[in-house]
């Protein structure tokens, strides 16, 4: 039930993938990593097309990043997809606000709330 089973589309792997998507089971480390990779690819596409809120601009997002978006939805639990899309909006707003504050000469605190670097 590893990473490669997904590409062979054998029935137990499909079942497992569906379970992960619906949230019936918690994803394993490999499944999580795959989801994060898909997420990063999708977000990169949104960045390239200047889309901030993929939930609000659903049509534009589907048009510009349809295929990566499908992969994102295939590899992640449905709840996670929504969560990450919302998180993206908040993160962009936060970064903009930080930039604004920095321009005003605010002090920077050493706090990391970003997604950590992955290998």
């Amino acid at each position: 039930m590893g990473l490669f089973d997904y590409f062979t589309s054998s029935s137990p792997a499909d079942k497992r993938a569906t379970e992960v998507r619906t949230g019936a089971v918690a994803p394993t480390r490999a499944e999580r990593d795959r989801c994060w990779v898909a997420r990063d690819a999708y977000f990169a596409c949104l960045d390239a097309n200047g889309i901030v809120d993929a939930l609000k601009d659903e049509k534009a997002a589907a048009k510009a990043c349809g295929s990566v978006g499908e992969e994102f939805e295939r590899d992640c639990a449905a709840q996670w997809v929504t969560y990450f899309k919302k998180w993206r909006v908040q993160d962009i707003q936060k970064k903009a606000r930080l930039k604004e504050l920095e321009a005003q000469g605010a002090n920077k605190m050493d706090i990391q709330t970003d997604f950590a670097e992955r290998k």
């Binding site: 949230g23 994803p27 999580r32 709840q79 990450f84 998180w87 950590a116």
Partner: peptide, 14 residues
């Protein structure tokens, strides 16, 4: 919680 999307797995690795 085990269904945690991003923060818990990272924090648990930490």
């Amino acid at each position: 919680f085990t269904h945690c999307p991003d923060i818990c797995p990272e924090e648990l690795d930490k």
